[in-house]
């Protein structure tokens, strides 16, 4: 194998990994704290993508102005839009739905979030209709660079940066701040934390909002490179599930490593054996589950007898 090909696989793989990480991290955060496998995550992604594509279409696609201002404005739209969705949808789903289900069987909760997903997908259809939205402007504005004779667009590179930024902020927040320590206590033992006077209800709401924000951010940041249209959320769910399962459910480093493993394997498959592309992710998932059922980086769990 030649060196150039190796390099291309590495770059493509990292780009795809960052995509996977961004769609999966919100899922793992919520699972880590609330032990809820949140299928509505797919709808958060769709909402983020739709809102961004809609606003960029409205304000930026045909706007005049310097590349820098327009880009900054686009990023602001992405960020503020995601925060907005994180608050609105997060409160809606956590307070309106999950609050009533924490005592129920975990499978029931998955099903409930699946139902929530179905409902939200049609709400999107009611708000934005069936026409697709395109928001390629930021992608074009960022330009491209060349590596080994291949042209890459810079926008996808910023995705890699964003992934590491998100991973770092989450890691820092969890391990170096007061809130993070409280969160760890809740993760470890919900009942005891409550007894210690921690407001678990509030913690749950905040984490869910963060998870929702991350889901929406995933969609929002991808909006400029995809065609935003009905059905994009479904595809994301399975991908995100797979990454989270591979990395270890509820583990942020796990999601990062899981995304990298899948991303690199997929890139290698596409370049070397394209016919395997469809199986790569499920094959890795099955293999990891067989040999390390808790995933590569599962957080330690207290066993209750």
């Amino acid at each position: 194998m030649d060196f150039e090909l190796l390099l291309v696989i590495l770059v493509d793989g990292l780009v795809y990994s960052s995509y996977l990480f961004l769609v999966a991290v919100g899922l793992t955060v919520i699972f880590g704290v609330q032990k809820v496998l949140n299928v509505t995550h797919g709808a958060f992604y769709s909402f983020g993508a739709y809102l961004t594509a809609y606003l960029i279409g409205l304000w930026i696609n045909d706007a005049e102005g310097g590349a820098f201002e327009l880009l900054a404005f686009s990023l602001a739209v992405i960020l503020i839009g995601s925060v907005f969705l994180g608050i609105v949808l997060g409160v809606l789903i956590e307070r309106g739905l999950l609050k009533f289900l924490y005592t129920r069987d975990e499978h029931i909760v998955v099903l409930a979030t699946f139902a929530g997903f179905l409902v939200l997908e049609d709400v999107i259809l009611l708000i934005w209709g069936t026409d697709p939205y395109l928001a390629f402007r930021p992608l074009e504005l960022m330009g491209s660079s060349e590596i080994t004779g291949l042209i890459f667009d810079n926008y996808t590179f910023t995705m890699i940066g964003l992934s590491f930024l998100v991973a770092f902020v989450l890691w820092y927040g969890l391990n170096r701040t007061q809130f993070g320590k409280v969160l760890l206590a809740v993760i470890f033992d919900r009942e005891v934390s409550m007894a210690m006077g921690i407001n678990v209800t509030k913690i749950f709401l905040i984490t869910f909002m963060i998870g929702t924000f991350l889901g929406a951010l995933g969609g929002a940041y991808h909006a400029p490179i995809i065609s935003v249209q009905p059905g994009i959320g479904v595809e994301v769910i399975v991908l995100a599930f797979a990454v989270v399962v591979i990395g270890g459910m509820g583990s942020i480093p796990g999601a990062l490593i899981g995304a990298i493993v899948v991303g690199l394997s997929r890139a290698a498959a596409v370049h070397l054996y394209p016919e395997l592309e469809l199986f790569v992710i499920y094959a890795i998932m099955a293999l990891v589950l067989i040999f390390r059922p808790e995933g590569l980086f599962a957080p330690i769990q207290a066993r209750k007898i």
Partner: peptide, 20 residues
Amino acid sequence: PEIWQLILGGSLLLIIMFLP
């Protein structure tokens, strides 16, 4: 025909909530 998923999902939610 355009929002059948919403109805299906909504019914599922109602059942989970009120007919555990």
